[in-house]
């Protein structure tokens, strides 16, 4: 299955909510646990630009299609953040540019060093590192899509569900890009497979780990993926990742849940 970058850019739109009656939340507000999860999701979406940076300092940037995808992907994710912010704003929670900045400022030295480490590691490992990035991106996009769909089911609110499904639909297109890229770069490249497997097993964490406080990661994981039904979803993400060449048997999402003591 090839990914058609021209089709992707030509059909890329910012996610819309103008036709949705978000004011219903004023009389019928979402429960606090859901708001907390939405807040997390919005922050992570806005944060995409930082992932974009990590990608751009690696050799993956040296390819035209990748650059075009990144440009549009970054913009779509920004609008996911804006859409979720709109919902939060209807609950008197405002996520303005200034507050997001405060969060990024607090990342401190760890974050400042990140692009340096990335750049050095990436260039040492050469083009195999692109495979890591692509597999990593695929895992993140699978997680994001599943998380939005899962929240839509859990909340069962018609307006929220419609918005979440719109976002999830775009996440599926992101999956298509990353998974296609990962597959081609892993197939018949044992060294890339070893490096990717190692990176995912040792360093991968649910999207937002390291950026968001651990308490928030645990909240979202518990909210979305606890209990038998939640675990089924997590296993589903793992199964997708495990189908990438050389990734058989990985269960990084379920491991992340176990580590945080999320109830099965």
């Amino acid at each position: 299955m090839a990914f058609d970058i021209d089709h992707f850019t030509q059909t890329s739109e910012r996610v819309g909510w103008e036709d949705l009656d978000l004011d219903v939340f004023r009389d019928d507000p979402l429960p606090p646990a859901t708001l907390r999860t939405l807040r997390y999701m919005a922050d992570v979406e806005y944060h995409t630009v930082c992932y974009l940076r990590d990608m751009l300092v690696t050799p993956s940037h040296a390819e035209g299609d990748v650059t075009a995808f990144m440009t549009f992907w970054n913009r779509e994710e920004f609008w996911h953040g804006e859409a979720l912010s709109e919902v939060l704003r209807r609950h008197e929670i405002s996520l303005d540019f200034d507050q997001l900045k405060a969060k990024r400022l607090k990342l401190g030295w760890k974050d400042r060093l990140a692009p340096i480490k990335q750049s050095v590691a990436a260039n040492l490992a050469g083009t195999d590192f692109i495979a890591v990035h692509m597999a990593w991106g695929a895992a993140n996009e699978w997680s994001a899509g599943t998380a939005y769909r899962r929240l839509a089911v859990l909340e069962d609110h018609p307006v929220l569900a419609t918005l979440l499904h719109r976002i999830a639909k775009q996440e599926s297109r992101h999956v298509a890009f990353y998974a296609t890229q990962a597959r081609t770069r892993l197939e018949d490249h044992p060294r890339a497979q070893r490096l990717t497997r190692l990176a995912l097993r040792r360093f991968w964490g649910p999207v937002g780990t390291g950026v968001m406080p651990e308490s928030e990661v645990t909240h979202v994981m518990t909210h979305l993926f606890s209990g038998p039904a939640g675990r089924v979803q997590a296993a589903h993400i793992d199964a997708n990742i495990a189908r990438l060449p050389g990734m058989e048997g990985l269960r990084i999402v379920q491991d992340a849940l176990d580590r945080r003591g999320v109830p099965t």
């Binding site: 606090p32 646990a33 807040r39 008197e92 507050q99 405060a102 406080p213 909240h219």
Partner: peptide
Amino acid sequence: AAPAQTAAPGIGAQADRRAAAAFA
């Protein structure tokens, strides 16, 4: 935001609400 001084995981609706509005 600083991972080192993480707040305790919230118990109950009020803690959730507070976490959702952190920095706001």
